[in-house]
């Protein structure tokens, strides 16, 4: 906000944008239902209705599109694209992630509700891929947000992605896809890693 606007609106010195405009609560892990039957049922529902938020950061995004076409049609498996993080549960990072992109990835990831799953798509998310020695792209996505499934390849074909979805479903059904809780439990570690690369951190600790 420029000084001029601040003056016009009578915003004084002590005005802190971040605390004024953003909720500053930290996330807390929410354990799944204690009842095994309920838990399994919920996991089954989660596994069979997956709303995808695709983050087309790199060339990998091009491989996401065919999934929804007649040739591959993942809606058969209960997977649907969803344009808003609030309603999605699967976050697909579609390739290399530069530092600037990471900020947006973190923001979107945090805006997804628990339980949430992340799929790293392509080698770049695994170890940096061909950008492994770049000054500006990360190497390991799982140091910044919890990743449930990596689909390696440069680029992986849609078939590989479907295989990845299958694996994800298995994990969800087994109750092993608890990334959101992992994130909440190791919140400080993740934040440290994130802040190590993101220098101008003009957002709250956790983007609700």
């Amino acid at each position: 906000m420029s000084d001029e606007i601040k003056k016009v609106n009578g915003i004084d010195e002590g005005f802190d944008e971040i605390s004024e405009y953003f909720c500053d609560a930290r996330p807390s892990p929410v354990s799944p239902s204690a009842n095994r039957i309920v838990r399994n049922f919920q996991n089954w529902a989660q596994a069979n209705s997956i709303f995808i938020l695709g983050f087309g950061t790199g060339c990998g995004a091009i491989e996401l599109r065919p999934l929804f076409t007649a040739r591959y049609d993942v809606s058969r498996y209960g997977l649907f694209p969803r344009p808003t993080p609030r309603q999605s549960s699967l976050f697909i990072i579609g390739g290399y992630a530069s530092i600037k992109t990471m900020k947006r990835i973190i923001r979107s990831y945090e805006q997804i509700q628990n339980p949430k799953f992340v799929m790293g798509l392509g080698s770049c998310t695994v170890n940096g891929g061909m950008y492994w020695d770049s000054y500006n792209t990360i190497n390991r996505l799982d140091h910044y947000i919890p990743v449930d499934v990596y689909v390696a390849g440069c680029m992986p074909r849609p078939e590989s992605l479907i295989a990845g979805f299958d694996r994800l479903k298995e994990l969800i059904m087994e109750g092993k896809a608890e990334g959101a809780n992992t994130y909440a439990e190791n919140f400080d570690w993740y934040k440290n890693n994130q802040k190590k690369i993101i220098k101008n951190w003009n957002m709250p600790e956790y983007n609700w």
């Binding site: 909720c23 799944p32 529902a45 989660q46 209705s49 076409t69 007649a70 049609d73 209960g78 549960s89």
Partner: peptide, 29 residues
């Protein structure tokens, strides 16, 4: 709509699953 697109489409009970799934979300704001 899926068939018109030449796809198979989700099962007919998918809306039920979707509702169950949204209900099983653990946080809200």
């Amino acid at each position: 709509v899926a068939r018109v697109h030449g796809r198979i489409g989700p099962p007919i009970w998918q809306p039920y699953i979707n509702i169950l799934k949204t209900l099983s979300m653990r946080t809200a704001l």
